[in-house]
Nucleic acid binder design. Structure first.
Lengths: 351, 351
DNA sequence: CTGAAAGCGCTAACAT
DNA sequence: ATGTTAGCGCTTTCAG
């Protein structure tokens, strides 16, 4: 019969002789139309189950993958979320902040789980909204997640006036237009300072650069607590330049009136560095100086002594950011979320 | 003069009344064809300098950005590099390894500098090449950077047989098809063990899970050094499960014959955790036990005592990976690069 | 130097 | 349930 001869053509299951790069190619091989192949591969229900499976098998056999660019162009949906790290107020051109990196890791996990791809950009704000609009306006992403607002809160507000699906990590400010997920930084700073004061510290300092609003707010909280106790807190603006943090700290401790006995730091990283420098100077912790970190990175429990710190819920934050961006993309409405920090008492304070 | 009257038409610089979303829209506004707008915006030389500038000004004024999907589809060039983290041999579903995260940060910097966008994917190898081909075959990226090979060396080889622009970080194996940038792990392991032996350690252990080839090779190097000195080295397969590392280490030290006096670790993270656990057990470092880390993360110098470790050149590695992927994309040929590690002696060994 | 025309590979009406 | 028809918005010959 002619039919069986036809059937025999199927025996070449291994050596694909014809190049099948496009839907049309596969359609030809399968003897159907491109439209059907498209539907079959998308797993749509309006295709006969067995043709669908046959086509999927064929696709596998020929190693065919639909071109995403074409698909995205046509469907006006990219399946990609842009994750942007604004490298603003700190002049370093490098992504190295372990907090951001940790948040990024969690975001990657959550986005993958939600079926999104992640496009990472580092951006250097320049006063105009251009650094952000280059990403929102490119048609390359369905939404944007900002890891930190730096000092760009106004610019971001301006962008969301015409670009909705955007969620930032960071500090929430009254009257702010864009949606933010973050920690109550003022409370965090206050918790840290209050704890230090309760543990007997009197000569307080805050270590951290207040160029970004988050840190500035932590300082405000710490200062409020100090003032409530009738104390002064000295602000020492340590920049996060990795290796160069040591010298900055040494200089800070060498200053004439620098015999601090309680230090609130803007991050665990600064705290760890301070711990190290103080240790080298022969100061006892928490005997001579008490320190509170910020973030509660996984590493905080590994320092010696283990670091007392203000915990931010990074994993939870990532989850919430992804939930919100998805909702925004679906056209729903969402509001900001401020999460309360918790004080984790370990051994760099006298508890 | 008529000229000044003409100039007055430009006063509506603020209120774009017509929506200009596409090249064609802008072309209409500019009174030229879409082709010319495309060329002007691409900065091509074959456009009259002043029409080009006029069009660019118009684009800026209307906030117009060409749709990347369309551009990429047409030009068959995405300007995107895929960065893939294979979450293979370790079952954790999470990106948290600080080494990978650090490498990722450097890659982001280098790629941005080279004008590429970065698409991050975490992948869970499943025995087939599918986890990788989903990315290489999607038409979404111009090339792929793999952060670690996990135990997928053969699969990767298979993929590069038909997909050239791929560079992996990791261990180089003789006869391997794909291009790798990485550290001489065997040498690294040997340096660590030799140093420990030279410092008087005799009861050696290697802490780390050898599921990935990199770690297995480090163990091989350490073992070779031990055997050359007539010593035995005990392999303790610590998994990188963040918080759960403590208990694993405690169990390791509680084992009957576990009075190690020299420990080679597979990463700084394990070393830091071990440091912490030993500290809690009241063991002196380096007095009772000496430890050598691996990676030399920025944090290694901050432990107390500061960590003796085997340094991998992460920043340099990222630079090399990006150089190689760019060359491969251009159709050039490249070979693997094995970088020598260096021993950084700090204070967890008796030097 | 610029315009017109032809797709890149796919999806989504609209038919049938 | 499947085929047909039209584009998505851009780039790039090919003319002029």
């Amino acid at each position: 019969m002619e039919d069986s001869d036809l059937g025999n053509d199927d025996t070449d299951t291994s050596g694909p002789d014809v190049e099948v790069r496009t839907l049309a190619d596969l359609a030809r091989v399968a003897g159907v139309s491109a439209g059907t192949v498209s539907r079959a591969l998308a797993g749509k229900s309006l295709v006969n189950a067995e043709t669908r499976e046959r086509i999927q098998a064929l696709a596998r056999q020929y190693g065919f993958r639909p071109n995403q660019m074409a698909s995205k162009l046509r469907s006006r949906r990219t399946g990609v979320i842009g994750v942007v790290i604004p490298l603003g107020h700190e002049k370093r051109q490098q992504i190295s902040d372990p907090f951001f990196l940790t948040l990024l890791g969690h975001l990657a996990d959550q986005l993958t789980e939600a079926g999104y791809d992640l496009m990472l950009s580092r951006a250097i704000p320049d006063g105009t909204p251009d650094w952000l609009e280059r990403i929102t306006g490119s048609g390359m992403v369905d939404g944007v997640l900002l890891i930190g607002q730096s000092d760009q809160s106004e610019v971001i507000d301006q962008v969301v006036s015409h670009y909705r699906p955007l969620v930032a990590w960071g500090n929430h400010r009254e009257g702010q237009k864009h949606i933010v997920v973050g920690t109550d930084n003022e409370l965090g700073g206050r918790l840290a300072a209050e704890h230090l004061i309760a543990c007997g510290a009197r000569r307080l300092a805050f270590f951290g650069d207040t160029g970004g609003i988050e840190i500035a707010t932590r300082l405000r909280g710490a200062r409020a607590a100090a003032e409530a106790a009738g104390l002064h807190i000295t602000h020492v603006p340590i920049k996060l330049a990795d290796a160069e943090m040591g010298p900055q700290l040494e200089a800070a401790f060498a200053a004439p009136d620098a015999d601090y006995d309680g230090i609130v730091t803007a991050s665990d990283l600064i705290a760890m560095s301070a711990l190290h420098v103080l240790h080298e100077m022969g100061r006892k912790i928490p005997g001579d100086v008490q320190i509170v970190g910020f973030d509660d990175l996984p590493l905080a429990r590994l320092t010696s002594p283990p670091l007392t710190t203000v915990r931010q819920e990074i994993g939870q934050g990532a989850k919430v950011m992804v939930e919100k961006i998805r909702a925004l993309i679906e056209g729903e409405t969402r509001i900001s979320k401020v999460m309360p920090p918790t004080l984790i008492v370990r051994e760099t304070t006298r508890s």
